[in-house]
Design a protein around this nucleic acid. Structure first.
Lengths: 224, 224
DNA sequence: CCTTTTTAATCCAATAATAGTCCAATTTTA
DNA sequence: TAAAATTGGACTATTATTGGATTAAAAAGG
């Protein structure tokens, strides 16, 4: 095997297409020129073409040229890292109400004790937005942990790694005046009460109300 | 024993492969270069190769190179990989009803056309469990795509990579008789109808009913 | 000192990439 | 419409690289 293997060339081309150097439906340079540009024999380039054609990225037409037919799926991290605050809150809208239901089913005494402590911490931080936000995050994390569903816990954890979360919490801090914090605290308390009295649907509804409030204050912050 | 024994070299290589320095199906550097890099004679490296080949980690092809054939690589934490089918369906219970609501909000004409095609495909596959399961997966995937929420799309994608999914689909195939498929088809149709008439809550309810049915047939299969 | 293992230096066989040529399909030009 | 130019496709012989194998020397260990 000499200088550059056809699979290396294929990887290189995949990268170029992924980076947008060649757009969809665009015709690539003639194989002779492209082979020269890539410092590789035309045969090798053809093997790489054949590989990418199998993968459905390219389509070559004799006499005409080789065309890009598809663009690789975006990398996994990018989709998540670049999630907007609105996408993020929609995801929480999907997950957290049902997490409340599961908490009623699987939550243990120590879970409710932890949630109670966090609730009290938040109630004692009406004039300290930073401390409140910290306890708030812990509250929602403890909620997911109480389901004993490792998959859900992991999903919530992934959501919390989203880069835009920084932006989101920053925005939240802007909106976190004493009035809003008292409002949130009342909602957290309602959720916890519903969980304690083992009413899954009421807990879910209260969580939805809470998230709706959060969404509104977020959008108000976005406008400003 | 001289400087570095072949078994030490083998251990070193095993570690490199485990750490992902060499990916699966990747070709290792030429034995001459690799031997030099590891500060060892080519003979010794070859003995290490032979050892790892016996273990099934490597495959050498004369004239071509030495390739990684297997790798114990855990992309996600074990807790997630080992998620049980029940945890999995609970996660879907959390996500999919809300995805229905978002589909009503953000779904486009082409989304509903795709869902319609997939519905018809499933309806034409009442006597073909394999084809049905394939279209079923595509249906739920298309549903998540219609939300235009990249974070949710990614979360659903992650759920679909869970290893236990194999076990789950295998179980499903066991339960997929013609009667169940007809039942699922009716439920899919109800969901699609609710989505089309822009009724988010009804769509969510119908999806919950569908997942409840799936959970029941799954648990019945688990008992057997 | 003797055995074992690693090293070192070759040569060989297998495989892959290269270079060159001609052909067929398509597009462009006259 | 027909000719010319351009493009990818196919094939061959050549060259370079890679692993395989053998041998003898050096090093390590008992």
């Amino acid at each position: 095997m000499a200088r550059k293997s056809f699979s290396e060339v294929a990887t290189e081309l995949r990268q170029l297409i992924d980076d947008g150097a060649f757009q969809r439906f665009e015709r690539l340079p003639p194989s002779r020129k492209l082979a020269e540009d890539m410092g590789v024999a035309r045969n090798t380039l053809r093997d790489a073409f054949y590989q990418l054609e199998k993968e459905g990225l390219l389509k070559t037409r004799a006499g005409s040229g080789t065309y890009v037919t598809a663009v690789e799926q975006e990398r996994v991290p990018a989709a998540v890292e670049d999630a907007t605050p609105l996408e993020l809150i929609d995801a929480r809208f999907a997950l957290e109400p049902h997490i409340c239901r599961l908490c009623v089913l699987h939550g243990r005494r120590e879970d409710f004790e932890l949630l109670e402590i966090l609730c009290q911490t938040m109630e004692g931080a009406v004039d300290n937005p930073v401390a409140f936000a910290e306890a708030d995050t812990a509250f929602h994390r403890a909620l997911s942990a109480s389901t004993r569903n490792n998959l859900l816990i992991w999903l919530i954890g992934q959501i919390n790694t989203v880069r835009s979360l920084d932006e989101w919490t920053r925005m939240r801090h802007l909106t976190l005046d004493e009035q809003i914090i008292r409002h949130y605290n009342a909602q957290h308390r309602e959720v916890l009460n519903a969980l304690r009295s083992r009413e899954p649907e009421r807990a879910a509804v209260k969580m939805k109300e809470h998230l709706e409030t959060a969404r509104h204050s977020l959008m108000r912050a976005a406008e400003a």
